[in-house]
Design a protein around this nucleic acid. Structure first.
Length: 414
RNA sequence: GUGGCUGUAGCUCAGUCGGUUAGAGCGCUAGAUUGUGGAUCUAGAGGUCGUGGGUUCAAUUCCCAUCAGCCACCCCA
């Protein structure tokens, strides 16, 4: 291995991979736009408080995964680990409470100091949408439907499962939390060390433990359904009925818990088995308390984020490299004519590349490697007649065409 | 952050029970073909055997550390 390695958990996106990413964000942006979400962007870093105050002191994202530094002005800055907090901050800074409801799409890099794994990087890329200012469950439905649409357009919907849960409102969740703590406290000694930790920090998390002994204890734990108040129950029912009406299949997963503190009511994840342990490709939920928590006017919101690397891996449809027309000039006079022609064709909307050097055979090889649709050969013979030889690379047929009519002649290859 | 596996050419991998010049296929460069690509043939370039240290007359090989990747935990997109 070369001594110049990229920083752990970061990755170069060479053209093939970049194209796969571009495809994911293009398809997502387009789908989101049909649901009324407009693209926007927030800075890649914020004051650390933006994340600390909102993500919750118990979340791993805040406690150990943030890239934080003090800048030259003495401000404590954090590279965004996710984008919902940034969007919420922007919503407040920009006074967008005036223009509620607001619907945003974004895509860009996020940073988390984690142990890298397949589908888990330190710099990774997310697409996402946020719908701010609507407290009706119709907003949740629109957001989930949009996620399903993105996956479908990417051609991966049928390799994923939509898992759904409700976190209830804060009253319901508070009571359930108490019930869980008192239940699990009885079994502390039997719990795994991870779960002991969770008991103190985020007891709901225990429900999702993979430890076998934990699972046994969990099987008799209080059920959230018994603690949901009427309002939370109604909300969830409308979401479920709506999904049925939209014919979006889902499975209830009462163990589905959000890591970040600001979530309430609807929580969902589109997951896949195809990516190993990192199975969530799109995940989100409702975050009614977030904007108020940040100091803005109480404003509800719903949204999701999707991992572009994971989505790209799942759909492994390497969108084909676009095929150019290749100009092959022979001789000095032809080089000059070729340069002009290249520019003319590019201006006319063609993708044009060059056979730069060597004899005709070498230049043809380059054209072939570029997977050219057509090669335009200009030598002294053609030049004398103000023409060029066009070779159709797929059929091997070729013919002479006057220079001036090339754009029309090549139109099928534009 | 924890545990395990792995690291030989641009890529996929062989090999060295510690011993002189480390191999293959693909790819790359050039020639056969001074105006014709894909196929074939020929030649060539490319490796501090991830990095640092230790043991040894001798280390790519054994040991330790370190870095990176992969798998699981954890967490999440």
């Amino acid at each position: 291995m070369a001594s110049l390695q990229p920083v752990r958990g970061t990755h170069d996106l060479l053209p093939d991979e970049m194209r796969a990413h571009r495809r994911v964000s293009d398809i997502a942006r387009d789908a989101a736009s049909r649901y009324g979400f407009d693209e926007m962007a927030t800075p890649m870093f914020e004051f650390s408080q933006v994340f600390k105050r909102t993500l919750g002191d118990t979340s791993d994202v805040v406690t150990k995964e943030m890239y934080t530094f003090v800048d030259k002005g003495g401000d404590e800055i954090t590279l965004r680990p996710e984008n919902t907090a940034g969007v919420a901050r922007s919503f407040i800074s920009e006074g967008l409470a005036q223009s509620v409801p607001v619907k945003f799409f974004y895509s860009g890099p996020m940073f988390r100091y984690e142990r890298p794994q397949k589908g888990r990087l330190r710099q990774f890329h997310q697409i996402g949408i946020e719908l701010i200012g609507v407290d009706q469950p119709q907003a949740d439905l629109e957001v989930i439907a949009c996620g399903a649409r993105v996956l479908d357009d990417l051609g991966v919907l049928d390799t994923t499962v939509l898992e759904l849960n409700t976190l209830g409102d804060s009253e319901s969740r508070g009571q359930y939390r108490e019930a869980l703590v008192s239940y699990f406290t009885k079994y502390v000694d039997a719990l795994s060390s991870d779960s002991k930790e969770r008991l103190a920090r985020n007891p709901l998390r225990i429900l999702d433990s993979k430890n076998e002994r934990d699972r046994e204890i969990i099987s008799d734990a209080p059920v959230f359904d018994d603690y949901l108040n009427q309002e939370s129950r109604n909300f969830f029912t409308i979401v479920r009925d709506g999904l049925d009406a939209l014919e979006i299949a889902y499975t209830l997963n009462p163990r589905l818990v959000r890591g970040l503190d600001y979530y309430c009511h609807t929580a969902f994840e589109f997951t896949t088995q195809a990516l190993g342990a990192q199975g969530a490709v799109i995940a989100g939920g409702r975050y009614d308390g977030l904007i108020g928590m940040m100091g803005g006017k109480e404003t509800p919101g719903v949204g999701w984020a999707g991992g572009m690397e994971r989505l790209a891996m799942l759909s492994d449809d390497p969108s084909p490299k676009p095929r150019p027309v290749v100009i092959v000039p022979l001789g000095e006079a032809a080089s000059r004519a070729g340069l002009n022609l290249t520019e003319t064709l590019r201006q006319g909307g063609f993708r044009v590349d060059m056979g730069y050097s060597g004899n005709l055979s070498r230049r043809m090889k380059r054209a072939n490697k570029l997977n050219a649709t057509a090669t335009i050969i200009i030598g002294d013979e053609e030049l004398a007649r103000d023409a060029a030889t066009v070779r159709h690379m797929d059929t091997g047929e070729q013919e002479e065409v006057p220079l001036t009519s090339l754009p029309d002649f090549l139109a099928p290859y534009r």
